[in-house]
Amino acid sequence: SAPVELPFLPFGGAVISSTEALALSEVPERLAVVGGGYIGLELGIAFAKLGAKVSVVEALPRVLAQYDAELTRPVVKRLAELGIEVLVNAKAKGLSSKGDALLVETASGKNAKIAADRILVTVGRKPVVEDWGLEQIDLDMAGRFIRIDDQCRTSMRGIFAIGDVTGEPMLAHRAMAQGEMVAEIVAGHKRSWDKRSIPAICFTDPELVTAGLSPDEAKRLGGEIKVGLFPFAANGRAMTKMSEDGFVRVVARADNHLVLGIQAVGQGVSELSTAFGLALEMGARLEDIAGTIHAHPTQGEGFQEAALKALGRVLHV
């Protein structure tokens, strides 16, 4: 995939994509970030910690809109602590005539300027489906992406597709797993593809982890659900790290307690993603997680406690 370019903010000079942001020779004194998704906030937070004055412009009513508001609240709090200016319901309009500021239409409809040495555009990524021969082989598409089945087969026999060109989630570990599966299929083994248990991590401060369904997504499937949320404010390891903001949340079916999704926000929670993915991959129920002894003191205890909370048996809240 490639970064999406805005027609009124083409890449070049002061306007950069995430690729150029990772290759800067010095930290910009003032950085304007267009797009408050995970890429924009990951990089924006990193540059703020390195000393840049960072402003984020987001067209939607809140940043990290792909996550629910409960999950992102600790991140929004941290943005303020880092001195990052966040403008929501605001639209980037272009570059100033001198090239030293981002022109913005604010939520109130007024025009404003954000002084910036660099303008980082992070409004998404698009599949790279041009200039490598796709038009000659006429594969079926799913919107902008190449259509595949559960074995990564395309509409043309003998041609497989993996990675970002096959759609969301655009994650490196997803592409690697797809590639491994295709290699095994080509070698004659039986494999199929199921993306439901892929963890996704937002490396902000604090970090976000999601795997499976959110509470709202689970409700939309129909049927009753149970949700257990355990705050890190009651977790001994989080206390010793002085990182008590955040929580672990488990979503399960109410009838048989099958775990449908797991989310977490907090310092270092990316390391819990493996346990979350494993639980979903193995079809764990709340009792499986609650009955597994978790070492103390660790943040992983929050996973067990969230399952206990959903069962009505929480110990430490």
Rank of each mutant, 00 (worst) to 15 (best):
Leu120Glu: 02
Thr204Lys: 02
Ile146Trp: 03
Lys126His: 07
Val104Cys: 01
Pro74Tyr: 01
Pro215Asp: 07
Pro169Ser: 09
Gly124Asn: 11
Phe145Ser: 08
Leu208Tyr: 01
Glu81Gly: 10
Val209Phe: 03
Asp117Ala: 09
Val88Glu: 05
Asp138Trp: 03
Gly163Ser: 13
Arg78Pro: 04
Lys93Gly: 00
Ser155His: 04
Ser97Cys: 05
Thr106Ala: 04
Asp138His: 15
Val209Met: 03
Gly158Leu: 08
Pro127Gly: 12
Gly143Ala: 08
Arg191Val: 13
Leu103His: 01
Gly109Tyr: 05
Gly83Gln: 13
Val128Ile: 14
Ala115Met: 09
Ala112Cys: 07
Gln151Asp: 04
Pro215Glu: 13
Asp149Ser: 12
Ala101Gly: 11
Ile185Glu: 07
Gly83Cys: 13
Asp100Gln: 07
His173Phe: 10
Ala142Pro: 01
Glu105Lys: 02
Lys98Ala: 10
Lys98Asp: 12
Pro127Cys: 08
Gly188Trp: 04
Val129Glu: 08
Val209Gly: 04
Gly158Ala: 11
Met176Arg: 13
Cys202Phe: 06
Arg144Gly: 05
Glu168Cys: 11
Val128Arg: 15
Arg78Met: 10
Leu103Lys: 05
Gly124Cys: 11
Leu102His: 01
Val86Asp: 05
Ala211Ile: 10
Arg73Cys: 07
Val186Thr: 10
Leu213Tyr: 04
Ile162His: 09
Asp205Gly: 11
Lys77Ala: 14
Ile162Val: 15
Glu180Gln: 15
Val88Leu: 03
Ala92Pro: 00
Val104Phe: 05
Ala200Phe: 05
His173Pro: 08
Thr166Cys: 15
Gly109Thr: 05
Ala172Thr: 15
Val209Gln: 09
Leu120His: 00
Pro206Thr: 11
His189Glu: 15
Ile185Asp: 06
Ile201Cys: 13
Glu130Lys: 15
His173Leu: 12
Met176Val: 14
Ile198Val: 15
Thr204Asp: 03
Ile159Ala: 12
Ile201Lys: 02
Ala175Lys: 07
Leu95Glu: 08
Arg125Glu: 06
Val104Thr: 03
Val165Phe: 08
Gly143Asp: 10
Glu105Phe: 02
Thr210Trp: 07
Arg73Tyr: 04
Asp117Leu: 05
Ala161Pro: 02
Lys113Phe: 05
Ala115Tyr: 06
Gly124Ala: 13
Val186Ser: 09
Ala115His: 08
Ala175Gln: 06
Glu135Gln: 15
Met141Val: 07
Ile146Arg: 09
Gln178Asn: 10
Glu105Asp: 10
Lys126Gly: 09
Ile198Glu: 06
Val182Glu: 02
Lys113Gly: 04
Glu81His: 11
Ala80Leu: 12
Lys98Gly: 14
Leu79Phe: 07
Pro169Cys: 06
Asp138Val: 14
Ala92His: 00
Ile185Ala: 14
Pro169Asn: 06
Ala107His: 02
Ile198Tyr: 04
Ala175His: 08
Val121Ile: 12
Thr154Trp: 05
Glu85Gly: 14
Asp149Leu: 12
Ala107Gln: 05
Phe145Tyr: 14
Ala211Gly: 02
Asp117His: 13
Ala116Val: 00
Asp164Leu: 11
Ser214Lys: 07
Asp205Asn: 14
Phe160Asp: 01
Phe160Thr: 04
Glu130Asn: 14
Gly94Pro: 00
Pro127Glu: 10
Ile198Cys: 05
Ala92Asp: 00
Gly124Arg: 14
Ala142Lys: 15
Ala187Gln: 09
Ser155Gln: 03
